[in-house]
């Protein structure tokens, strides 16, 4: 059964130095507060996995938490580059970052294979393109029925998955709504998981019979962090703070402005600031 913990306890037990961690969220429900806590706790040598590494991975990479990134699209969506990711790849700052690069289809399939306890994923893709030349983990298999050659990638089996969701109930079941991305697959593919939630309710109440629910016994730990997805959004709670994504471009462009911002806004703060951020985002909405 999922254990209710504080965010600090959850990160300490689920995300350990040197482990592989998938902090997923496809634009929506991105676990920013959890990423900040991992930075505050000084996590090192992580393999960060995510289809769309955005601001939170930019921050973790810039703070030296990661030695490897497994990804399929690394940008500031709608704005431009992730400058800390680029600085790591182009200049090795703060240290060298190994890349394992895929396409979205490959990673989505690889998460699903991980959740299904299969060794690899098979799909129709990567034809004629250069990624297989630079990523030796992309291979192919010949269909035993039709002879078609199909692309394969190894299943994603992270040591840890970290996601943000709308609600948990008293028994530790977790409910996600809206754009649900690959979060369910990431949690089921991982050895351990931490879910941060907007609120803990007595009972989910009336709901769609097909709602995305992670049963308590499929989750390791749950921490209540209202606003924990800010500046991304939580469907039904607060909107995406697009102005912050735009502002991040300038903050992250130079190393010193980045470090100053991280010190003032993350290292010297705690998870309680997220409720405040989300409150402002709600008012603006």
């Amino acid at each position: 059964m999922a254990e209710f913990v504080s965010l600090a306890e959850g990160i300490e037990s689920v995300v350990r130095d040197g482990c592989s961690v998938a902090m997923e969220g496809f634009t929506h429900l991105i676990p920013h507060a959890a990423g900040h806590e991992a930075i505050r706790q000084g996590r090192k040598r992580l393999t960060l996995i995510r289809m769309t590494p955005d601001l939170i991975y930019d921050q973790m990479i810039g703070m030296g938490c990661a030695e490897k990134l497994v990804f399929s699209w690394g940008g500031n969506p709608g704005v431009g580059s992730l400058h800390r990711l680029r600085d790591a790849v182009e200049n090795g700052w703060p240290h060298r970052l190994e890349l394992e690069e895929h396409s979205h289809a490959a990673m989505a399939n690889a998460y699903e294979a991980g959740a299904a306890n299969l060794p690899f994923a098979v799909f129709r893709g990567y034809k004629g393109v250069d990624l297989p030349k630079v990523n030796p983990r992309i291979k192919s298999v010949t269909c035993p029925y039709t002879g078609e050659v199909l692309a394969t990638v190894p299943a994603i089996r992270p040591d840890a998955a970290v996601i943000h969701a709308q609600k948990a109930d008293r028994e530790g079941n977790v409910l996600l709504e809206g754009i649900v991305g690959v979060q369910k697959e990431a949690v089921l593919a991982a050895k351990r998981s931490l879910v941060t939630v907007e609120e803990i309710v007595e009972d989910f109440g009336p709901r769609n019979a097909n709602a995305v629910i992670l049963p308590s016994w499929a989750v390791t730990a749950i921490a209540r962090v209202p606003g924990g997805a800010y500046p991304s959004y939580a469907h039904g709670y607060y909107k995406r703070a697009n102005d912050f994504y735009i502002a991040w471009d300038k903050i992250a462009r130079e190393r010193d402005t980045f470090m100053a911002w991280m010190k003032a806004n993350i290292l010297e703060q705690g998870p309680e600031v997220f409720a405040h951020h989300a409150g402002l985002a709600r008012q603006a909405a």
Binding site: F26, T27, N109, V180, G181, V182, Y233
Partner: peptide
């Protein structure tokens, strides 16, 4: 117009929203 590929506006005005593996598969 959505700023990102996953803005809430897209989900709010969609007929339905599916998971990303289903989308690609």
């Amino acid at each position: 117009l959505p700023l990102s590929i996953g803005d809430g506006e897209l989900c709010d005005t969609a007929l339905t929203t599916v998971g990303v593996p289903e989308m690609f598969r």
